Computed example of a mutant assay.
Amino acid sequence: MADLHTPRSLIVTLYGAYGRTTSNTPLPVAELIRLLNAVGVDAPSVRSSVSRLKRRGLLVPARTASGAAGYALSQDARQLLDDGDRRIYAHPSPPLRDGWVLAVFSVPEAERHKRHLLRSRLSRLGFGTAAPGVWIAPAALYDETRHTLERLELAPYVDLFRGEHLGFAATRESVARWWDLEAIARLHLDFLAQHEPVLRAWESRTGEPDAEAAYRDYLTALDSWRRLPYADPGLPEELLPKDWPGGRAAEVFGLLHARLRDAGAEFVRGGPSGS
């Protein structure tokens, strides 16, 4: 699958990487334009994407300490990003004994549009389909699932359960039905094809890293990676095929994060004049 860094996605990635503070300080519009220009997004696209994110309730207009116009994360957006951190930066492979979370839903025909939304959101959270109206995921995804369903006002249609698989098919065979493991593996391989050469190039460099280059390579790697822990829910290792590429993909992202994140922060803090 092609790796498409859309302006809207890059803005969300930017806020996730560098835009969260305890005081939720807004990013000035001029800074958003500068920082997105460094990864190839022009000013009109930034403004258009910010407007869409504002309409979706993820960004809220706010003034900076100097009085400049800017945007801060909404409370829902902060919860979304905080939930995402546990996947993006940890991406654990839980032991099989941790069990599963089941989402069982029923939506009245008069509200069938919510049925589509439910399926879409559960899929984006990494759930697999065990049966019509019955979705399954590793138990570690319970908290994020609950937050998501409550935020979207879908909780009244869903019952959540924790449990273990008691049969009758072997669980390894079952997960191959519940998830498209071949498609997930291709996503990991695509990530490796695009970003492992970037890691090798940085590992061969000596001296202090260039802050703008570090920022650019980190932001695009994070923008690619942050989708993968949602497509791949983090299944127990013993249920995955041999030579599963997810471990290596997570390792490559982890090494890029360790090498580039803080170096890129220097460019974010630098401002238009580099001061």
Rank of each mutant, 00 (worst) to 15 (best):
V12S: 10
A258L: 13
R121M: 13
A155D: 11
R269F: 12
A211F: 06
D190L: 11
L59S: 11
Y218K: 02
G163R: 00
G274R: 04
L260I: 07
V268P: 05
S204Q: 15
R259W: 01
F253Q: 08
V198Y: 06
R261C: 09
G270E: 05
H5N: 14
T145G: 05
R151N: 14
A140Q: 09
L32P: 02
P236H: 01
L117F: 05
L199Q: 11
R115Y: 06
P28T: 03
L187P: 08
S174K: 11
H91T: 03
L81Y: 04
T21L: 00
S48V: 13
L14K: 08
E212R: 13
G84C: 04
L219K: 01
E150C: 12
S120I: 06
G19Y: 03
G70F: 02
P236A: 02
G264H: 08
H165Q: 04
G264R: 09
V252Q: 00
A77P: 00
L118T: 05
Y230D: 14
R115H: 12
G254M: 03
R151K: 14
S9A: 13
P61H: 08
L228W: 10
A90V: 15
R52Y: 08
A72H: 07
A263D: 01
Y215K: 05
G133V: 04
Y15I: 02
Y71T: 07
G271M: 02
A249E: 09
D159F: 12
L73N: 00
M1D: 06
R162H: 06
V101L: 06
E266R: 15
E150L: 13
G270R: 07
L255D: 11
L36C: 08
D85V: 07
S66E: 14
R121H: 10
D3N: 14
P229C: 01
L149H: 03
P156Q: 03
W178E: 10
L117T: 13
H195Q: 12
W178V: 11
E212S: 00
D98S: 10
R78Y: 08
S275K: 12
L27Q: 10
N37H: 13
R56I: 00
N37M: 09
H195N: 10
L166W: 00
G247Y: 10
R63C: 10
W179G: 01
K54V: 13
Q194D: 15
L122T: 01
P28A: 12
T206N: 05
V39N: 00
L141Q: 11
A170I: 06
R186C: 06
A211C: 04
R112D: 12
R63H: 10
P245V: 14
S174P: 00
A193F: 09
R269E: 10
R248Q: 12
F267L: 04
N24R: 12
V46T: 06
L125S: 03
A131F: 12
D262Y: 11
L219V: 03
P94I: 04
L80S: 12
R56T: 03
A140K: 08
A130V: 02
L160G: 05
G128A: 05
L141E: 07
S174G: 15
V107P: 01
L260E: 02
S93Y: 14
G163M: 05
E164M: 02
R269Y: 15
A140G: 13
E237G: 12
